[in-house]
């Protein structure tokens, strides 16, 4: 039972990782929170659903979702953050304008789906269940885990093994110095937003498949969990976010499984209260180094 819960939590953690890595990557490089990230995640599920509903195969839906969400994310960067970055007000302003973008994307999705809950047709993903050592694993779970891990590896390779990644890390550390070295931050920002959105889109498809319910609001809880995860990992830290995703996925699954039913309604409250305590006592998370409480200079 415990092992089963841990396994389930691990799978969920993989999906969280896809969501949170992009979230924290954008923060690391731009010092902005993209609050449209939940809506971008949702748009991935929508794109895949409508591709499948139109008769396309799932793999095509997944590919289109990854690309489409990436592009939507780039659009959000251009519309919401670019001007603000130039005026130096991206911390406050970025939150406001990305809330705006989130509202716009969600309204469009609401219109398209007519406020309905969408479901992938039965057996879009073959229902196969294996049992071993008393554990139950579905093909979908394996697929989720495999895809999540594959994309995380791809991201890691990008960030730590390519010239692009070196530039991203340079901009993360010091944008001005990076510019002096001839790096074009505008291009880097667009690329990171694309990566971030693409990963979120993939996560959206997986969640749509796993829970078989796609709704224009499905990004909201993920955005909230995303907060917890990226703070736990340390804002802007990629390895931190990865570790935190799996810890959070497993922790949340355990909470759901073992909480006495009288207070199980408080699970969400516990999660956010924990976030509060974390912010209080270790605001830079497991692996971050951001000064969360440093006095602010000119605004």
């Amino acid at each position: 039972m415990l092992a089963q819960q841990l396994l389930n939590g691990f799978v969920v953690g993989g999906v969280y990782a896809l969501f949170a890595l992009g979230f924290t990557l954008v923060f690391g490089i731009q010092r902005v929170l993209n609050l449209a990230h939940g809506a971008i995640f949702m748009s991935g599920a929508f794109i895949a659903y409508y591709t499948v509903a139109a008769g396309g195969p799932l793999w095509l839906g997944l590919a289109l979702a990854v690309i489409g969400s990436g592009l939507i994310s780039v659009l959000v960067e251009i519309v919401c953050f670019r001007r603000l970055r130039r005026s130096g007000d991206e911390e406050f302003g970025g939150i406001i304008s990305s809330i705006g973008a989130s509202l716009v994307i969600m309204t469009i999705a609401q219109r398209i789906s007519d406020t309905q809950v969408l479901r992938f047709p039965f057996e879009t993903f073959p229902v196969i269940i294996w049992r071993f050592w008393g554990l139950r694993v579905s093909a979908l779970q394996l697929f989720m885990l495999a895809l999540a891990l594959a994309l995380v590896v791809v991201l890691g390779w990008f960030i730590y093994r390519t010239a692009f990644g070196r530039q991203v890390r340079a901009v993360t550390q010091n944008e001005r110095a990076a510019m002096l070295m001839g790096i074009n931050p505008v291009r880097i920002h667009m690329q990171t937003f694309f990566l971030s959105g693409a990963l979120a889109g993939a996560a959206g498809v997986l969640v749509g498949l796993a829970f078989s319910s796609i709704r224009y609001t499905m990004g909201e809880p993920f955005l909230m969990y995303g907060f917890v995860i990226i703070i736990l990992g340390g804002l802007g830290s990629i390895p931190g976010a990865l570790l935190a995703s799996f810890l959070f996925g497993m922790g949340q699954t355990m909470l759901t499984a073992y909480m006495p039913s009288a207070i199980s309604g408080l699970n969400e409250a516990f999660i956010f209260a924990a976030l509060f305590l974390l912010l209080l006592f270790r605001p830079h998370g497991l692996m971050g180094r951001e000064a969360a409480g440093a006095l602010r200079g000119r605004r």
Partner: peptide, 19 residues
Amino acid sequence: LRGVYQAIATVAFVQIVYS
């Protein structure tokens, strides 16, 4: 806390009240 951290903490507060 400062800046985005305050924003996140207060959104968490709103969620706690709601839950």
